[in-house]
Amino acid sequence: MLLLIKLSEVFPPLLKNTDKQLEKNLKLLFANASSAKYTTFCFAFTMCATIISIPFLSLLSVPLLFALPFAAMAFIFVLLLPSLDAKLKLNKIDSSLPLLIYSLESELACRTNPLIALKELRHFPALKSEYVQIIQLISKGSPANLLPKLVVTPSQNFSKILHLTINNDCEALKKFRVDLVQENKNKSKQSAAKANLLGTFFIGVAAVLPALFSAIALLGQIVGFTLTIFQIIFAFVILFPLFDASLLYYLELNTFKENR
């Protein structure tokens, strides 16, 4: 994702995007990113992909008009990628928070200075960028009480933890941890329920669809429906794996797992 955003930096900001959320998500992933440049990159990327796919479409005996909805879908997908990535990051951060609070609580209970207690963040890979920002802000001499406002993070819960830690409020941290654990339990239950539903769908897409396709490829001639070798290979090597990857990506977006 970072590579795509960095690549988009070489594009001119021709297409303006008024979506503030996109700008915010891009900034979370890469500080210098611009939504106008990224939108231009998405458009150029989709155009290139469409042009490249034209000879393949003729090989597949598919009308060229079919390229248009696929191009639109690809454009929307690439445009949505930063938001999806930010959601994944937020999930990872939120799942690490109970353990982080637990660790901060024990440090504060042992009368450790709150700013030194914040060093505990180094043990959490999901909070790496936040940790780097805090270290930079402290070394620049920023006042400690401004840290929650200055640190850029997708998680509001993290900002609250930062605020409570700096104020050395152990009791409030503990209460917040209990609430977060309950919230995480609910999220985990919801994600398990979604996964069950998606699992049924996954079997349909990953097993039944290819199996029926192979049956059609073998028996279709009886009803005058023949598939070319290229169509068969395309379906099994590109189309079905693409469906599977999309479903699993969606599953990952909705999966909650508490980090250790």
Binding site: N184, K185, S188, K189, S191, A192, A195, G199, F202, I203, A206, A207, V208, P210, A211, S214, L248, L251, T255, F256, K257, E258
Partner: peptide
């Protein structure tokens, strides 16, 4: 409790890809 839900997902997916999908096909 949280890990029980997560491992259910892990093993269902593993079972699905290793056994169920090839068997149905």
């Amino acid at each position: 409790q949280i890990e029980a839900d997560a491992s259910l997902q892990k093993y269902s997916l593993l079972l699905c890809c290793a056994l169920l999908v090839p068997l149905v096909i």
